[in-house]
Write a protein that binds this DNA or RNA. Structure first.
Lengths: 159, 159
DNA sequence: GACATTGTTGACGAAAAAGTAAAGTATTCA
DNA sequence: TGAATACTTTACTTTTTCGTCAACAATGTC
């Protein structure tokens, strides 16, 4: 259970773009230098993000990348999903909502635990926006810790 | 951001052991057959879990594996940690508690987002025990969904 | 319209993870 | 004691992922 290299760089590249408040955008070369990765690698990552509609690109001498929508409308879950293997998506596509969780799963005991945990994690990450990561990472961290402690999770689980 | 193959199989092997209510334990051959993996692979996974003190083993003709402690005292976070690369642990060892989150991080802006998210996820997973996964996976899933919806996360984050 | 700059795309090699194999060690029972 | 069973440990092979390279396409400037 870890963030892959691509996912981490994707997140960090987006944070760089989100910090551009002047609406200027950044070139692949600039992004690569700021995050310590090659221009080629930055190109690959940004291309995936572009396909997913998270960033928009412009070619030519005035080109570069910028966010496709405000950073408070981009969740970490959105970003992570871009780099997931498409094959895994089909593993259990029926898992789409709380109402349908058990409808398609008579064989609940065989159901991979994998899927349950993945959905749990994604649910948590969908509540963290890029805007929250941009300003002060530590504040976000503290808030999340408090969040988890405040939630009556243990009681709810054992009920 | 996904569970690795080893982590998934580790979880599932432990669920098999947790289902053994007669205190008998299971051999590597039995575990492998039940989870569709080779005996050799099961051996590798259970060896790691044994080193971590999550399971205990017995050699000889009456040998096998069993949980080292009750399943409600084993969290998913415990299990996942077993299969993490030890090198990553040193990446930011100062991240040990909520009080010390920002103490060691004057360079907060440079701090990898990776670490923050990993801690967040681990915090969530530390609240799920093996016992909860054993009985009915779907019930656990529903509870977690309700949990996440009930928690006033968005309000807390934007405060 | 020529040129420099920048993003786009596919192919290739390197690195890491996963799984397999085999030899070794300990325990039990006849 | 000896043989069968089962865990232990290391090394190897396969598979997957990661990163780089090179050629291509599009845009803006002079």
């Amino acid at each position: 259970m870890r963030i892959t290299a691509q996912e981490e760089y994707g997140l960090r590249c987006l944070i760089q773009l989100a910090r551009q408040t002047d609406g200027q955008g950044l070139t692949l070369k600039q992004i690569g230098e700021r995050e310590g990765i090659s221009t080629a690698n930055a190109g690959k990552i940004l291309w995936l993000l572009s396909n997913a509609g998270i960033v928009k690109s412009a070619r030519g001498i005035k080109g570069g990348y910028m966010l496709a929508r405000p950073s408070d409308q981009i969740t970490v879950s959105d970003i992570i999903s871009v780099f997931e293997n498409a094959d895994l998506e089909e593993h259990c596509k029926s898992f789409s909502g709380i109402q349908e969780v058990c409808v398609h799963n008579a064989d609940c005991g065989i159901r991979p635990v994998l899927q349950i945990l993945n959905e749990t994690v994604k649910q948590v990450l969908s509540q963290i926006t890029l805007a929250q990561l941009v300003h002060h990472e530590c504040e976000v961290s503290q808030r999340l810790f408090q969040l988890q402690r405040a939630a009556p999770t243990t009681a709810a689980m054992s009920a």
